[in-house]
Nucleic acid binder design. Sequence first.
DNA 1: GACGTTGTCCTTTTT
DNA 2: GGACAACGTC
Length: 761
Amino acid sequence: MGKDFIKDLNEAQQKAVLAFKGPSLVIAGAGSGKTRVLTYRIAYLLSQDIPPGSILALTFTNKAAREMKERIGRLVGPERARYLWMGTFHSVFSKILRREGHLLGYPSTYTIFDTTDSKSLVKKIIKELDLNDQIYKPGEVYGRISSAKNNLITPQAYFSSAQLMEMDKRTRRPRIADIYKLYALRCKKSNAMDFDDLLLNLYILIRDFPEVLARYQEQFRYILVDEYQDTNYLQYRIINQLSSRYKNICVVGDDAQSIYSFRGARIENILNFKHDYPDYHLFKLERNYRSTRNIVGAANSIIARNRDQISKKIWSKKEAGEKVKLIRATTDNEEGYLIANLIQDAVYAHQLHHQDIAILYRTNAQSRIFEEALRKLNIPYKVYGSLSFYQRKEIKDLLGYFRLTVNPYDEEALRRIINYPARGIGQTTLSRLEEIAASRDKRIWDILLSMDDYAGVFNQGTIRRLKAFAALINGYRENLQTMEAFDLAYSIAESSGIMKDLHYENSPENLSKWENLQEILNGIKEFVETQDQAEDTTLDSFLQSVSLLTDADSEKEEDRDKVTIMTAHSAKGLEYRFVYVTGLEEELFPSRMSSNTREELEEERRLFYVALTRAMEQVTLSYANTRYRWGVPVNSVPSRFIREIEPEYMDQPFEENPDEPYRPTWKFSQKKVESVPVTTEKMKRMKPVSRTSAPSPSGIHFTADDPAEIQAGMQVEHPRFGQGKIINLEGEPPNRKATVFFKEHGQKQLLLKFAKLKIIR
DNA sequence: GACGTTGTCCTTTTT
DNA sequence: GGACAACGTC
Ligand SMILES: Nc1ncnc2c1ncn2[C@@H]1O[C@H](COP(=O)(O)OP(=O)(O)OP(=O)(O)O)[C@@H](O)[C@H]1O
């Protein structure tokens, strides 16, 4: 088989690809082609006739896995790429647990609890234990449980860890261990695993069943891990076990991009590699292929300030390019407005597609401002948010029915839908059901199946309603074996009353919800069609894979060419021609929560480094002097990170106290203060601080398009009226007349030969 | 038990 | 400014 593709790589990269036997560590800075090495290494393995099924490749996101697979498919043919074991730790392990989970007492149809399910269960347990949820905050308790799991601490181990128990005592939460134990028990009773269980259970599986371990060691003779700096202890142990027989393991990473310590990621995993595999090969890549020299220089100057790091050279042969720009805004809203305008201008000036642009920030709450600003200018965008499409209420409701059908012991799903749509089963009934189940060591579903035994406990009507509900779910269950996943899902959506509930009131919100449900159904169809194994085309398999998807993973075709708005964390591994890093203020980026120790601050700095190095051609930084926090304006100070960039890479020197058109000096009272209204006109007059090569605002260098090209439906721009849409055209040239609807100025009739219209799309 | 209104807390970051 | 729990009324 041809392996000419190797010449797509530089010499250092080639070496890392060709050394495919034995342990390899690739450690290199941003944009140096680590992911590319991993991709080509897999392609090379395939070209050496290594069966795809014996290669396990773990990536950080499902999207990265999909793209890598596609790339490999182009290099060595899609047929071979298809059967690779490739995906995130969670998704690959969830598939293994489908097959092997029975050894640990889980059915293959187990439910995956998402964070919301987990927190809601924790909260419930806290209530049941009669603990104060002010002290035992569900989110925090769940965090403790999660980090325990990721450090391989089971409930028993938690109880016997003097250190943990001591710490909980000191924080006046001595009963976290009890909550943890109950939580684990209840998940198990619900036939459910949370995200961390997917890792923990896989570990337990290979620890307690040596024959299973041996089988997977035999199968996965080649193991590759991307973004290794962000693996946690549990992941490390699993990889270590799986690779211990053949030791054909290749990990790639960059300690300077480790940004997930909050979920247990350990840079030490990279450092330990040489101890675990003393005969390892080390590969360093130094040439950055992504960014211009100024961007690489700026990023290097930032990361050099960290004490904890493996020193690395990184250089670019690309042109020097533009320097880093800085935008100062008076308010957060203005920040949104200015960035949106810059984007609009940059698209024209630099021939950008919208997909070449990303806006990054530290917290998800910042997205709203940019969404509004972009929407106003009609710039298409997509948000990679923390709550994905599958977390929306109407979606979770429908999925709740699917979940209950597949696994009726899933109590989170049951609680969610037993009374949606309303069927007269309220809180009182539900509590009683839970009580009965708990007192008899049974599960709610067991009680529902034997309602006749509880004639004395519930009244007639309630019994009838509960029986009807159980019969409904049982009816669906009977079809599990016989019906196709899509048909079953469709019939559930129709007959459960969910669709009807949305049709009942014809509001726009309901219409959009209805469309979302349709999308889920289509999603099932597509899922079934794209599975490689017949055993994976079931509804339970769909549910499992869907709970591990993020927004970025499940992008639709029509969303491709849009500006991406997301956190710096989500941007890891991605690249864009133009990048806007926003909200660079003290207490925000770096976050207030992580400004206490040097270690925390260094991680924030790494995050900033990640953000900068996503850019290929241009970086723009921004901050606002005033930002609304919980509806209250708060003054803010520019981030230290701006100052930390070597001035030679900055467009203009950063002035600590520049002249500002507006700077509130008064103290904010508790009462909500009216924000100073900044009118559109006012904002238009304000110039961004960054001036070099900043494209002129539309209207000054306005060039009209040929009127003959204008057609109905087009988006156009008028020098005075702004953006609008062509509603209608009438008459013959040269007296052709257009009806245009302008967003700001309403409907106008214009003669094309006079109106200077620019076609936007 | 359903539904609407008020009040509280919230913001790191994600599989 | 928004999500969600708690409260009150029908
Ligand atoms: N030898 C090469 N020739 C041309 N382009 C290359 C080469 N190596 C890498 N690139 C390009 O450089 C960019 C960065 O590569 P890649 O994403 O693999 O780097 P990385 O080290 O994984 O980056 P990061 O750690 O920042 O995510 C990509 O656009 C890639 O196509």
